[in-house]
Design a protein around this nucleic acid. Structure first.
Lengths: 204, 204
DNA sequence: CCAGATTACGAGCAATCGCTCGTGTTTCAC
DNA sequence: GTGAAACACGAGCGATTGCTCGTAATCTGG
């Protein structure tokens, strides 16, 4: 059994790993997971293929590491979106501003993110890496719904949360792909969609 | 110049082409465009790789032909959804029933469809093949909006239509992937989302 | 300063995949 | 009936790609 002994990385190595992940994010973003070649990623990072494999054992592991990085960054974006406000009392429009804007901004700033996770045909383990985000977001939305529409029975609330997440993620590409000057108007539309649905949930 | 002379197909050949497209739909549906191998499609159709290439010059052309078939089928689904009703006068809930149900049904019955078209990284020409559907749907929705909210200025109406299409297509995977018994409830949610947004457009 | 570990290189291996080609069988117009 | 075209086969070619391996430079703890 070739028991994988963990290496002691030098500072240079850590820097390289970050550079490789940066390059990978770019290549994945514009080529997708399958079409992105490891040699192209290495070239984009300014290193040789062999060097890349000093740090990541294979292509899925590279994507996985990038996924992990996105997970933590996305999580802080979610945290700033979802904390420090009384969601039960806040007017709906303000609530939407607070929640939608930062998450949308994250997706605009990290185009590689949806290129990796919006794909229906990714390896199982990659999908597993994305689930922490999905799960955490879903939980937060469910708690939000519990605060604002306490009367809703549990299974329906779970369904509502899934629909909200799906609608939002379905609209993200539209906003991300739009030219800069159209984004504000589209952001307004996103909030109208979510707001319209939330109003029917809250019973007004 | 190897001027592509069109063949005179025999009845057997036409049948084979249909069989190949059926097989391709299945393989594309569960493997995605890239991962689907032409040899696997040939095997699924019960023929040899060489035979497949008697009918389709290459893999994109095969996907293209499948796309064309989907386009016409989807178009009839759209036609039954969008014709023979006075959209200006119909109550919103009835309107949604008439439009949403058949299109959703088509997507449930043809899982290969979104596997081919919901992908962000497909070849340019494949995306071009999908655009007739997209364009036709968008046009119909715009006309529908024009009938129900005549006051909306043109650019905003176009934006509204794009958002509606995107929201709907974002929710399709949720409905398609759900177990049979959850689909009715999710269909209701789809209509609530679209209805909620439409109400804000119509101004009540 | 030196030994061992880490980082770096890049040609090329092995496997995969789209597709071809030589060959043989079936169909159909005349 | 006959010849040409359409249909069918499947081994394998050529190109691509994920990854290796032998070798060399660089770093670091002692």
């Amino acid at each position: 059994m070739p028991e994988e002994r963990p290496r002691r990385r030098q500072a240079r190595g850590e820097r390289r790993m970050a550079e490789i992940l940066d390059a990978a994010a770019g290549v994945f973003a514009e080529a997708g997971f399958e079409r992105a070649t490891t040699n192209a990623i290495a070239a984009a990072a300014g290193i040789s293929p062999g060097s890349l494999y000093q740090f990541f054992p294979n292509k899925p592991a590279l994507a996985q590491a990038l996924a992990d990085r996105f997970v933590t960054e996305m999580d802080t974006a979610h945290r700033t979106a979802f904390e420090g406000a009384d969601f039960a009392a806040l007017p709906l429009d303000e609530l939407l501003d607070r929640v939608v804007d930062p998450i949308l901004a994250f997706n605009v700033d990290n185009p590689g993110f949806k290129a990796l996770f919006a794909r229906p045909d990714m390896p199982r383990d990659l999908a597993a890496a994305a689930q922490p985000i999905q799960g955490a977001l879903l939980g937060r939305i469910e708690r939000l719904l519990a605060a604002r529409a306490p009367g809703t029975p549990e299974p329906e609330r779970a369904r509502n949360a899934r629909v909200l997440v799906q609608v939002f993620q379905g609209l993200v590409p539209l906003v991300v792909a739009a030219p800069e000057e159209e984004r504000p108007a589209l952001t307004v539309e996103v909030k109208r969609v979510l707001g319209g649905y939330l109003r029917t949930i809250e019973g007004r």
